[in-house]
Design a protein around this nucleic acid. Structure first.
Lengths: 194, 194
DNA sequence: ATTGTGCATTGACCTATGGTAAGAAGTGAA
DNA sequence: TTCACTTCTTACCATAGGTCAATGCACAAT
């Protein structure tokens, strides 16, 4: 039986069926209940997560105690504080399950093994990082200038289907507005779309 | 005569005096006048810049035509679209001189050479990227929840001295507010600080 | 000196979004 | 079923920040 993760490894890193199977010893699966916290902020951790099924979020709190969501991770997404792994620093955010989920957990030894099996691991890995930086820059641009409505539309593009699965207040927290405002935005948009 | 860049290379990459000199053939210096554009958006470029003296900015425009500043780069800072270099894509922002400046320009061949001279080039390079991602996440957090005043105070920490050199409207564009609002924030802060 | 240009400040007003509170609708447990 | 709980919506008012316009200031060009 083949998992999403195995499919992802093959596709993303161009591994053979055989090599993909070799990696099985370097990660473990874990099922999570809704609300379970995988990664605490300020924690020394070297784990990284692939979402087999379910939905996770990464978030932190600002000085006034409000939760800010950095990222959602539905099926087939990766999530975790890679920076803390490589920089040997404390993690800079939480990771928590929004739904009952199944995740694959792995750490540096997985990457080490992968780099042996994948000839151009470094390049691909670096490219992924650069793409992530691009995405963050895009988000910063939106936060600098776009209205709540524009940001919501952008969210819908980035995470299709998620608008139905995720509680409104979490989307609002991702957009940097209140749930009430988001509710108004949705009302306004309802006339345009569909 | 030793340049800031040579000092930076030695310190950042732990090279010997000799190796540092070898790299001289892999970058060139260029002087810029205020307002000169080093990198156009949507351009295929593989250049990266180190600021010897002066001040640069990277920026793009949002849908409503407003300029958004992604980063300032005073002396001894690096700037450029690394992502576009590695991903072979068009650049996602402009780079322009705010003051008359002197920059060191280099490209992949410089990195190639550096990776030969620096044993743990990959690790250090990756660590730099991760630090950058952390910084971007921090900025996103501020934009999600902090007031204009809080963001301005954060700006002052990140870029000490810059508040005197940079036109107010550019700082405002970095913070995502109008020059008028920033002026009011500064007025308010003036009572507290100093 | 005069004019012009760009920038910072200020004030008056406006708008998007926040804050609060209340109710409606859905969900799950006993 | 009822109760408790959460989510979403709506209404009303408050506020941070935006918009526009006027002023003043510094500096460059003539």
């Amino acid at each position: 039986m083949s998992s999403n993760f195995q499919w992802y490894i093959k596709k993303q890193w161009g591994l053979s069926e055989e090599d993909t199977l070799k990696l099985q010893n370097f990660y473990e699966k874990r099922s999570l209940e809704k609300g379970e916290v995988l990664l605490q902020i300020e924690e020394f951790s070297n784990e990284y997560y692939f979402v087999e099924s379910g939905l996770l979020k990464s978030y932190s709190y600002s000085s006034n105690g409000k939760e800010h969501i950095l990222q959602f991770a539905p099926e087939n997404w990766l999530i975790g504080d890679l920076g803390s792994i490589h920089l040997k620093e404390r993690s800079s955010f939480y990771v928590e399950a929004i739904e009952d989920s199944l995740v694959c957990i792995f750490n540096e030894s997985f990457f080490d093994e992968l780099s042996k099996l994948c000839a151009n691991f470094r390049e691909r890995n670096e490219a992924l990082l650069h793409k992530h930086v691009r995405h963050l820059n895009h988000r910063i641009n939106l936060l600098l200038g776009a209205s709540a409505e524009e940001r919501y539309v952008d969210f819908l593009k980035l995470y299709p289907n998620l608008s139905k699965r995720v509680p409104l207040r979490l989307i609002a927290s991702y957009l940097g507005i209140t749930p009430e405002s988001l509710s108004r935005v949705r009302k306004k948009i309802a006339h345009k779309e569909f």
